[in-house]
Design a protein around this nucleic acid. Sequence first.
DNA 1: TTGTACGCGTTATCAC
DNA 2: GTGATAACGCGTACAA
Lengths: 349, 349
Amino acid sequence: MAKVTIKEIARRAGVSKTAVSFAFNDPSRLSEATLQRILSIAEELGYVPDPIARSMTTKRTGCIGLLVPQPIPDVIRNPFFSEFLEGIGEVCKETGLSLMLVPPLKGSIRRAVNDAAVDGFLTLGLETFRGTMIVLEQRGVPYVMVDSDPTLGIPCVNIDDQGGARVAMAHVLHAGHRRVAILGIKSGKQGRYKEYAGTLRRRMEGYLAALSEAGLPMRSRNVHLVECDSHANGGREGFQQLWRLKRRPTAIVAMSDIIAIGAMEAARELGVRVPDDVSIVGYDDIPAARWTQPGLTTVHQPIREKGKLAADLLVKLVEGGTDSNHYVLPTNLVERESVRIWTEETTAG
Amino acid sequence: MAKVTIKEIARRAGVSKTAVSFAFNDPSRLSEATLQRILSIAEELGYVPDPIARSMTTKRTGCIGLLVPQPIPDVIRNPFFSEFLEGIGEVCKETGLSLMLVPPLKGSIRRAVNDAAVDGFLTLGLETFRGTMIVLEQRGVPYVMVDSDPTLGIPCVNIDDQGGARVAMAHVLHAGHRRVAILGIKSGKQGRYKEYAGTLRRRMEGYLAALSEAGLPMRSRNVHLVECDSHANGGREGFQQLWRLKRRPTAIVAMSDIIAIGAMEAARELGVRVPDDVSIVGYDDIPAARWTQPGLTTVHQPIREKGKLAADLLVKLVEGGTDSNHYVLPTNLVERESVRIWTEETTAG
DNA sequence: TTGTACGCGTTATCAC
DNA sequence: GTGATAACGCGTACAA
């Protein structure tokens, strides 16, 4: 069936397009007779206003965009992302907004941003955020950045990445571990952690601070850094790589729970017991951290709250408000059962 | 800064809007001099085409919608949904499409569908699919239904829900269990399972078929049905409710893994051992089913493939193709460690 | 109470 | 070959 437009209805009703529009958006401006005539014709023809044409004039799409740094399958494989979506979703529920997932368009964030018909953007963990900021500014819609390096004048929501990482590392060091491995998140920098930015940099700084306090230099044979993809299989591969080492770690500190969970999976497959043979600490405190056996000791961050706060902020901005504050949400260690005291005599190759 | 439009550039360059548009979309139709003049002015002003205005004429948004039956926070709490998104995401990655999550707009699916500026819809597990179909037809964009009752002429993607459910129930019955509980998914029907539709109905039919084969009528004191919300906490509550019963089940068959996982959590909290004290079977085979201890015996369904197939289908439809086939993907039982043989003598209060 | 004109980018059609 | 005109779709300020 050919698309039914406002024009067609106007023609049949013998009125102007305006009158038809009023029938739906401001009925009081029409006489009862005209109104009913228009409405019945529209009903009969099954008229549905074109959302795009409508957005043209209203300047509103009823949708906010979530700009992610990687293709959807890559980001969704980390349950962290689901929980973040849940927080945003609460705001959508309250406000009646939809949510668009906006991955780079054939590698180009610029094209993705320019093509997305949304009222504003949330950005999550963008590494190339400087270039992205220019693109977003040009695009002319408000945006809120989450898990990036805070930038003056731009509303940002972050967590205390460094503090959390420091506590996590300190926890295993206090437990006596002196051979530790860090399962990091793939950075594209091949382990050159001094070039890290954003969340990765801050977490790394936290680990290093705790290491330094314990007198363990990063450049020692007792400290390893392995970068993993942010999903369970990435963690599994990371663990396998670690277990091929001559000097295996007695404790593993992972930059995300899903990596830690993958590592635990690999450990089980290799007959390595957690925490008897190796201790593991995660980061994020996703729901699954409670389901594993042993329960995963990890750094809790308020993921849902982070998403909700960022979305609330964006909605305020979209509605014309202003807010360029930086928010830093707290983190804290959650002790479960994946870490065990390590004493010298138990240390064996 | 005021929005830079094509008109402003045309004015400054002393050409028509058409020329400016050609500069970006069909440069060969302009003389080199005109082209460069337009391009440099556009560059200088930081021009970005308005995606909405562009969609007006192209009739394309570069975005597909996923219509979900509940608010985003409710659906995302089931990891099943993430994996489904992963499958859709693969198609987005290949085709350069974005994905819009479209929940009911203040309870109205009609408004949500009419307001969403997308090239087509995927629907997931819609209960009120008859009314929704009319809305979608009127909306005039192609759509593919997933996990609904198959409807003639509409492309549908489903799994063998009934077969999977039957095998799951048969599995615990073969293991000797005679007091079983079903942890169902909240239906809005207060347990009147004969009124179920779609996925729920098919799974229920599968359970009933196996029960019937074993000579266990549903209307017996030995078979219980409890409806749960589709998240871990729903499963936890379901288990707690079951454990308040006088005649506790020796086996629990859950309609989704996340409910089963929540039940396992509740069991652990109550000191009930799985599978020694109670056996549990799930449905879906989400990644977390491998992480629990004991590993969850469950019905595997190809979630990602389902999402990918549905999205591939939709893309074909959006591009003008036709396909109103019905696809039914296979399911199979995955045995892990959450089910144990039950003999009469072990049966105690 | 109802009609006119405008905003926005693309493209079929037409003019030279 | 080069480039202008008009139409698409809706909502709304403004005019009548």
